[in-house]
């Protein structure tokens, strides 16, 4: 544990590092839990390199150096690979913590990440009460949408917007990413409208997540996190299913790292 003293005042800074399968995010907070900076980088094949890069960027944007950090929490699937973190906490607790911090009325969190999806129920204090995660395959995750966007040769940003322009929905029968891609290619060959196919793909993801939502149940306000929350096509369909609007932070991809940073502050104070 480190304590940084600046002009006679105790200044403490905290970092949350979320090492996901596709991207690594870092959030730096000050002692008031105000976000000083964040960074998002591709994880690639070397977790440690990705962390060094992402942490370096975030620290540089905050005007800090690594030794000024008082407590670091690592989360995400690569959390075990970070030797210098003070604590490792699962992304489930981190997403619950950040959702509560940003939107205090949240009781249900839907996180759709690169290769896994989660539905988390939290209490009024942000503590996890229940959760569920997707199966071992990538159906219903960001990776599924990325592969499908690739089949249409459109960017992920445009992919969600195209879904909203559909006149009808062409159902996709396969939930397997590989088989669904073949199905999509067949539909393209049949000259089906791409917007209608894309709408079907978005529905497929939402239906998959909806099964998980029903396992945990919908309670209170719903917050969505993870990169897929940037996809309007998914969000609109999910809001239709829920029958209510979803809270989404301006940068939903950093919510795991933000939760980790908030928990870093909490653990620092507890240990102090």
């Amino acid at each position: 544990m480190r304590l940084w003293r600046f002009k006679g005042l105790s200044m403490t800074y905290f970092a949350g590092i979320d090492i996901g399968s596709l991207t690594t995010e870092v959030v730096i907070l000050d002692s008031n839990a105000d976000m000083l900076s964040y960074s998002i980088n591709l994880t690639g094949a070397d977790c440690n390199e990705a962390v060094d890069q992402a942490l370096g960027q975030a620290l540089s944007r905050a005007g800090l150096s690594r030794d000024q950090l008082s407590f670091i929490v690592a989360t995400g699937y690569g959390r075990v690979t970070i030797p210098f973190s003070d604590k490792k906490i699962t992304e489930i607790s981190c997403h619950g913590t950040s959702a509560h911090h940003l939107f205090p009325d949240t009781e249900t969190v839907i996180d759709i990440g690169g290769q896994d999806s989660k539905v988390i129920r939290i209490d009024k204090e942000g503590k996890v009460l229940d959760f569920t995660m997707n199966d071992k395959c990538a159906a219903g995750t960001g990776r599924f949408l990325e592969v499908m966007a690739g089949a249409f040769r459109v960017s992920l940003e445009d992919f969600g917007q195209l879904s909203l322009k559909a006149e009808r929905e062409i159902p996709i029968s396969s939930v397997c990413t590989v088989f669904a891609e073949s199905e999509v290619i067949s539909l393209i060959a049949q000259n089906q409208a791409r917007e209608d196919i894309i709408r079907g793909l978005h529905s497929s993801v939402v239906n998959r997540i909806w099964n998980m939502v029903q396992t945990v149940g919908v309670h209170g306000a719903v917050t969505m996190s993870g990169g897929v929350a940037k996809n309007r096509g998914v969000v609109v369909l999910m809001e239709e299913k829920l029958g209510k609007p979803i809270h989404i932070h301006t940068e939903p991809q950093i919510m795991g790292a933000l939760g980790a940073a908030l928990l870093a502050k909490r653990h620092f104070l507890q240990e102090k």
Binding site: Y77, T90, E91, I92, S93, V128, L129, D130, F131
Partner: peptide, 22 residues
């Protein structure tokens, strides 16, 4: 939901750890 003798996947580990945190 386990397959026998398949070891502990990262995802399964996360589930158990998250449960213990909970």
């Amino acid at each position: 939901d386990t397959e026998l003798n398949q070891g502990l996947s990262g995802q399964m580990k996360t589930r158990v750890e998250a449960f213990v945190e909970m």
